[in-house]
Each structure stands twice: as C-alpha cells, then as structure tokens.
Design a protein around this nucleic acid. Sequence first.
DNA 1: TCTGGGGTCCTAGGACCC
DNA 2: TCTGGGGTCCTAGGACCC
Length: 395
Amino acid sequence: MVLSNNDGCIIARSEESKALGIKMGEPFYQVKDMLERNGVAVFSSNYNLYGDMSRRVMSLLSTYTPKLDIYSIDEAFLDLSGMGNADTLTNYCKSMVKDITKGTGIPISLGIAPTKTLAKMASKFAKKYRGYEGVCLIDSDEKREKALRLFPIEDVWGIGRRHAKKLAYHGIHTAWDLTQRSESWIRRELTVTGVHTWKELMGESCISIEELPHKKSICTSRSFPGIGLDRLRDVEEAVANFAASCSRKLREAHTACSSITVFAYTSRFRMDVPQHCIYRSVNFTVPTNDIREIISAAVKILQEDWKEGFHYKKAGVIVWNICEDRAIQSNLFDCINRAKQSALAKAVDEVNRKNGHDTIRMAVQGYGENWKLRNEYVSKQYTTNIRDVIIAKAK
DNA sequence: TCTGGGGTCCTAGGACCC
DNA sequence: TCTGGGGTCCTAGGACCC
C-alpha cells in the first residue's frame, strides 16, 4: 500500500489490501492499527523512483510509434493507425508488452480501439482477463457493443462520481445504456464534455492524439505537518521554495509565466479553531521564469496578506498565463536587464544540475525543517540515487 | 495529532463595450 | 404601465482526470 505526501492518505493498494476493505483516499491514521495487525506493507510516496521508471517505460513505448501522447505518469496513447490488420496489431502489441516487462519489470496492459475512450475501456479488459495476454482489441461493432454492455458507467473515462450518481438515477448503469440516450439529452445533463464521451463510446473520435504544446498552469503546494505553521518566517520559507520549484519547472519546459497566485489556508477539518484563507494573484509586466522575480513576487503577496493568530495547514504557489520562453512579448517600461538575468539563471541551473536542486538557492528559501514533509516509510531511489543502487552479490 | 498533489475543461454570472 | 439587443472578457466554482 502506498501513501500520499505527508503519509496522509492511502493512494495505491494491492489486490490483497483492497480485500481487507481499505478504501482509496482513506486517511492513513484511521486504519494504521488495523494495517499493522494484518501485516500490510506500507510505503510513503517515492516520486523520484516513479518518475524515473515512468520515463523508462515511455521511452520504450516511443520506439513503437511516431506519435506518442503521454497522458499521465502511468498512461500513454499511441497512434497505431495504418499499422496493419487486427492480427498484425495484436501481435505488435503483444511484443510491446513483452519488451517493456523485460526492459523495466513493469507489467502493462494495452487496449486498441478507434477512440481514446474505447481504448481505455479495452485496456481495462486487457488487465482484468489473463486470456488477453495484456492486449485487448475492439475493432468491430459487435465487440464494441459486447464491451459496452459489460462496462459499468462509473468506470467510463470522463464519468466521475457525481455524474455516475445522476446517471444511475436515470437508469443508466452501463456504458451501453449511455449510448442509448439522445445527443441533446447528454448535452443537457453532462454538457459538451459528456457529448464527447458519448460520441467516443460510439466509435467517433473526439479526443485527438497530440502532445500538449505546454502546460497552462503549474502548481507547487504542500500540507504542513501537525497543527500547521503560525509564524510568518516559516510559511515565507515554504512559499519561497514552492516559488523556486515553479520557476524551475517553467525553465525545464522552456516556458515563462505572466501571472502568479499564492495561497495559504488553515485546516478545513478543524471546526474548533479560527479559519483564514490567503489567496491572491499578481501579474508580471514581462513573462518570466526567473527564480528571483518569482520568489520575490510570491513572498510579497504572502507578507502583505499575512494575518497573525492562525495555524496555516497548507500553502502553495501557482504560475499561469504561460508562454514559450522564446516568444516573450517585451515591455517598453521593463527595467530588468533580461540578458544578464538569463545568463545568471543558466549558470545557476548548470551548477544545480550537476550538484542537485537548490545547491545554489535564494537566502529566503532557508534550511528550516519546520514545514518538511513526513515520509516515514519511503523506499529507496533505486534508479536515481547512486547510494541506493541495488548491489548484486556474486557467490 | 493525524485528512495529498497536480492538472484540464466548462459554465454562469458580472463587468464592460456599443 | 411601459426600461433593448448584441457582444467580449474575466473569474469562481464545479466537474472531471491521474
């Protein structure tokens, strides 16, 4: 079983722990004793490991198609159009499954279909039934209807808990039931996104395969351990680090932002203590990804809106209005020497790339441990930290 | 005491324009 | 008694995803 950041919630479970009745998203502390009694292995999140393994899998996938659309850390869409008939495709995909298992040890499931929504459905069948050997193909109306009839509405991509409940009320329990309604009914009840899902289930592709040009917003946020932080200095340090992380993510993606939002709030679970919420945005005159500009804007918002007497439980920084860093609209009244700024940033990034994040940092980022995450059960960074590499002993 | 983090898209409603 | 019609842009909030 794997925990969220701060060892807060349960976010991944093996089949065995599911069988114990552990629910997704359940707070860890509420079931901790029960888990210990049952000998459940518990792990903190280890994003360095997951991120690195994901990159390896994606890199192998990219050798199978010119058009790879990485959807999340563990999912990708591959464009296989024009790559042969049903048999050829199935065999091609079975060799993909074997290669990736061999290359990374990660088991994968593949669904092949005319639309993304159907492909996701097919991949669930591929995972569920061993007979498929990891690959399930939906290439005819008969197969599609059979699959739709077997598929619960709440598992359809794009149908969340709220919509599933509403649809159940209207007697819609499977993906097939949904396709039997009229477009106007779907439009009224589920808006245009629902219409896209509805069309995709019927085999008409509405969600294309493409690499996103760049993100529209980037957020770094954390919950603080215990009752939270009540000193400005501590929250300031955290916010400065969140801002630094946003600026780094912008630079890595070769982008810059025009707006920044800072937020900090007290615990929404504590009804017995006074609540407060800081949430404010400002714009930059010229789009930027500079660590000093972004940190100072973030810290300024926090200082100006800070209210004493509260325990802040969570804070974060969001940067948005993002553009590519080579297409920045300059401003007549800009008084920053941009060339100098970017030369310095480049030098700092180079040092940090070799020596680790934040080797060179802003003073306000500090070294305080007051806001650091709890991760008591973290596994090793087997693939990204030389000290954690597995040692094979020859006997 | 303890309750995650990071995204996208759509809509309604308010503010504004002529 | 009676108070138009047609737009754009922005934001908050809600839905969804992993």
